[in-house]
């Protein structure tokens, strides 16, 4: 009697685990299918992932983050003297530029008022801090601590004091994900400072450079040219600094981004005025 009960229990257990396994496989394929069709359920799951799981994982991994930050601090201290000398040199060089910039800015304002032209300034929606960076194994993106509650919507441009960082690809209530311009899936319409060359830049597979995927009328820029957003796709506001051309091939060119993606702390979400 006892052994019969045991056999029945074992059969029941096996069938229930079989049901669980089948259910998980079916659920996985449904999730993958819905993910491709951008179903609302997937967005809710992603919201939970970003808003709920992220703080927990951040807490668990905080000791490693602290050790990592200490290592970076120590490394910075080691090269302090060299950096100091470089900064002093840069300050004296920038002071000359500052005088020139003030003069030009004053002139610009006067010319604009004379021509009654519209300004091309950007409207800052929110300044947010970076709470997470992707490890670079798959896509290159960052998570920032501002979401729908601060009117952050998909496709808004993200910048910092040095230039263009990327665009918002996903927003939840409190957080947003920003696809960096160094990701190979990103496309940024750019132009040179002199308006002679227009192109579309994507991230390279290494994530260190930007590479042109399309050049208008095959007019390639020169090495050293500055690249700014052209505003053509109406995603990125015009005239935001993107990078500097470092190599020109027969049919494409490479640029180095102005933003130091290893030291992102605060970013600004902007749109054209």
């Amino acid at each position: 009697m006892v052994s019969e009960n045991k056999i029945n229990f074992s059969i029941k257990r096996k069938s229930s685990s079989g049901i669980l396994i089948s259910f998980l496989f079916i659920l996985s394929f449904i999730l993958i299918l819905f993910n491709k069709t951008d179903y609302v359920l997937i967005n809710n799951i992603k919201n939970i992932g970003i808003d709920v799981v992220s703080p927990i994982t951040r807490f668990i991994s905080s000791p490693v983050t602290i050790v990592n930050n200490v290592a970076i601090r120590l490394n910075n201290i080691r090269s302090l003297e060299l950096k100091n000398a470089k900064l002093k040199e840069e300050i004296s060089r920038l002071k000359k530029w500052q005088t020139l910039a003030i003069k030009n800015s004053r002139e610009n304002r006067v010319y604009k008022s004379l021509l009654n032209s519209t300004t091309n300034e950007v409207e800052i929606i929110k300044t947010a801090s970076v709470i997470n960076e992707s490890p670079g194994i798959y896509n290159k993106f960052i998570t920032i601590n501002a979401g729908i509650n601060y009117n952050i919507i998909k496709d808004l441009a993200v910048i910092n004091n040095k230039g263009l960082i990327g665009k918002i690809i996903y927003t939840s209530k409190n957080n947003s994900k920003v696809l960096l311009i160094t990701d190979s899936n990103s496309s940024v319409p750019v132009k040179t400072l002199s308006d002679t060359s227009y192109a579309i830049m994507s991230g390279s597979s290494s994530g260190k450079y930007l590479v042109s995927t399309f050049t208008k009328e095959n007019k390639l820029p020169k090495v050293g040219d500055l690249l700014l957003t052209s505003g053509n796709a109406k995603v990125f506001p015009r005239d935001i600094l993107v990078g500097k051309v470092i190599k020109v091939n027969e049919d494409n060119f490479f640029a180095i981004p102005y933003v130091d993606f290893n030291n992102l702390s605060y970013v600004q979400i902007v749109k054209s005025k």
Partner: peptide, 14 residues
């Protein structure tokens, strides 16, 4: 947790 909430700047450590 370390993988998904990575603030590690070293690529090889990731």
């Amino acid at each position: 947790s370390i993988i998904v909430s990575s603030n590690i700047k070293f690529y090889y450590l990731n």
